[in-house]
Design a protein around this nucleic acid. Structure first.
Length: 280
DNA sequence: ATGGTCGCAACGCGA
């Protein structure tokens, strides 16, 4: 089973690239962020033509999230209980969409952008992460064997090496100790970054401004956090940095995780060494 | 190259 996350910065502006990518990546679940459209504007037919099902959350042009799934997702839920109700305009809840596919609960997350530490959005971001962590803890308390993937744009760079020059970010988002502590709370509960061990270097975002991408001045802020039972199934991970090149790219690239099949009788041989790189 | 980010119900604002 293959799960991917991608902040596409407008699904309508990105549709040809996303469809091309999906046709070659053979993912079972693609979590999208920043679809920048209302549900009725989402170009669902293009995905359905590839055999995918679409679940969407979006209430305005910003920050919408979606789940594109090979099989219909069950228990689709927008947001989590306890999400802060006091969003700072134009911050809009819930920026989270959960669905279950083949026994795996996947949450497509767009963690609020904190802007700067003296901005109300910063406090809001920390509160939002805190509520999500609280909720995620309860999911594992209820079922320690639950297979849960928390995927998306976390807007946090957990380590100094996750930005191109830590000196340029002194005292700023997304590298403040409070943000890193909020992100680290998930690991403390057992949700692990399942990509870094298999893709130890590389960014997931390069700002459009200032020619950041040609100079590889990026940030690693898109993550897949897996519950213990999910992490135990991870056999490979891939950051598709090539998606940042070419015509009309998003400023983020897809992050992909491959899970072992639970029943070896159902092993599919779609992840041979010959397959790498998995996205052509 | 007299410009140098991109997206959006948009000529300002969010990322």
């Amino acid at each position: 089973m293959r799960i991917a996350t991608w902040n596409v910065n407008s699904i309508r502006a990105r549709l040809p690239r996303v469809i091309d990518w999906l046709a070659s990546a053979r993912v079972d679940v693609l979590a999208l962020q920043e679809i920048k459209c209302r549900p009725e504007q989402f170009p669902g037919a293009a995905f359905e033509a590839l055999g995918y099902h679409v679940s969407i959350w979006g209430t305005n042009q910003w920050n919408g999230v979606a789940l594109i799934t090979r099989e219909p997702a069950t228990d689709v839920q927008a947001g989590f209980s306890g999400a802060p109700a006091w969003g700072v305009p134009p911050a809009v809840e819930p920026r989270a969409l959960g669905g279950t596919v083949r026994g795996v609960r996947v949450w497509s997350l767009y963690v609020p952008n904190g802007r700067s530490v003296d901005d109300p959005h910063y406090r809001y971001k920390l509160a939002w992460l805190g509520r999500l962590a609280h909720e995620a803890r309860s999911w594992l308390a209820e079922d320690p064997d639950a297979q849960i993937a928390l995927v998306g744009d976390w807007n946090v760079a957990p380590r100094d090496e996750d930005v191109w020059d830590i000196r340029a970010f002194a005292g700023e988002t997304p590298v403040t100790p409070a943000e890193r502590e909020a992100f680290g709370a998930f690991a403390a509960q057992g949700y692990r970054d399942v990509v870094r061990p298999l893709a130890p270097t590389g960014y997931t975002f390069w700002d459009y401004k200032h020619g950041r991408y040609p100079r590889d001045e990026g940030m690693r802020i898109d993550f897949v956090l897996g519950s213990p039972a999910l992490a135990a199934r991870v056999e490979d991970a891939f950051i598709d940095r090539a998606a940042r090149s070419g015509d009309k790219p998003s400023d983020h690239v897809p992050v992909v995780v491959q899970l072992r099949e639970e029943d070896s009788a159902e092993q599919r041989d779609d992840w041979d060494e010959d397959d790498r790189p998995m996205v052509l």
